[in-house]
């Protein structure tokens, strides 16, 4: 007795005349899968690096992120506390257990309660790094892993993202290139482009539907 899988594939093969596919054509398909070509890359994704930081900032703001640009790691640490103070939030954050963050000079900033690990239901503020950031749409790419739990991107109401200039690329395609170089595909890749929102109630847009209400970027121009 044939399985659903066989019957579905059988119908597909009949419909597309897969019997006519030559070994050479099959080869072309294999090669396309292994070495994908790039299609149309918009000009906005290929700006010189001097312009791409500004472009990233503009796009991120258009998506309702807030962003500060700082010159050093010390300033970045201070900027976390600034954000908490400006929004009347307690001096308490949950962070990714990532070298990218633990290497920051936290002791130089104002006192701050820091826990590392995945998010809990009552966490209010998370601080995370990015794997890579994409200028073309002001998008930050986070991946799951032992140093970067996914829940930190979604559970707390406030999400502080630390982006370094060296994290920034122009296009999605460049972002994939970086991820491929850093190892096998992680369980989750999150493109984050602004806080959570919904227009499902009365056709009006409100922030903080399920994920963070605020997404704050601290951009280190190192």
């Amino acid at each position: 007795m044939s399985t659903s899988r066989e019957r579905i594939l059988g119908r597909i093969r009949t419909g597309i005349r897969a019997d006519l596919r030559t070994p050479e054509q099959k080869d072309v398909l294999q090669k396309r899968l292994a070495n994908p070509g790039r299609g149309v890359i918009p000009a906005r994704a290929q700006l010189p690096s001097s312009e791409s930081v500004d472009f990233f900032e503009t796009r991120a703001k258009a998506q309702a992120c807030t962003i500060v640009r700082v010159k050093s790691e010390t300033e970045a640490v201070a900027a976390v506390s600034d954000f908490l103070r400006d929004n009347n939030l307690p001096a308490k954050v949950v962070m990714s257990p990532s070298e990218k963050l633990s290497a920051l000079p936290w002791e130089e900033g104002p006192s701050l309660e820091r826990r590392e690990g995945p998010a809990r239901a009552d966490d209010e503020v998370s601080v995370t790094p990015v794997a890579v950031a994409v200028a073309e749409t002001g998008t930050m790419v986070a991946v799951s892993g032992p140093q970067t739990p996914t829940t930190l991107n979604f559970v707390p109401d406030n999400h502080v993202v630390i982006v370094r200039k060296s994290d920034l690329v122009g296009s999605y395609e460049e972002a994939w290139e970086r991820l491929r170089q850093s190892g096998p595909m992680p369980r989750t890749v999150n493109w984050l482009s602004g806080p959570s929102r919904s227009a499902d109630i009365g056709q009006t847009m409100y922030m903080g539907a399920h994920g963070p209400r605020r997404q704050h970027i601290i951009f280190i121009e190192d």
């Binding site: 796009r59 258009a62 998506q63 257990p97 690990g117 995945p118 998010a119 749409t137 998008t139 799951s144 892993g145 032992p146 739990p149 996914t150 829940t151 595909m185 992680p186 369980r187 989750t188 890749v189 999150n190 493109w191 984050l192 482009s193 602004g194 806080p195 959570s196 929102r197 994920g211």
Partner: peptide, 21 residues
């Protein structure tokens, strides 16, 4: 929108050393 707030790729279950998923 140029891109939605979230675009997410899921690949398999959590890995052995992942902290969530």
């Amino acid at each position: 929108q140029e891109i939605t707030a979230y675009t997410t790729l899921s690949t398999g279950p959590r890995r052995a050393d992942d902290l969530d998923g």
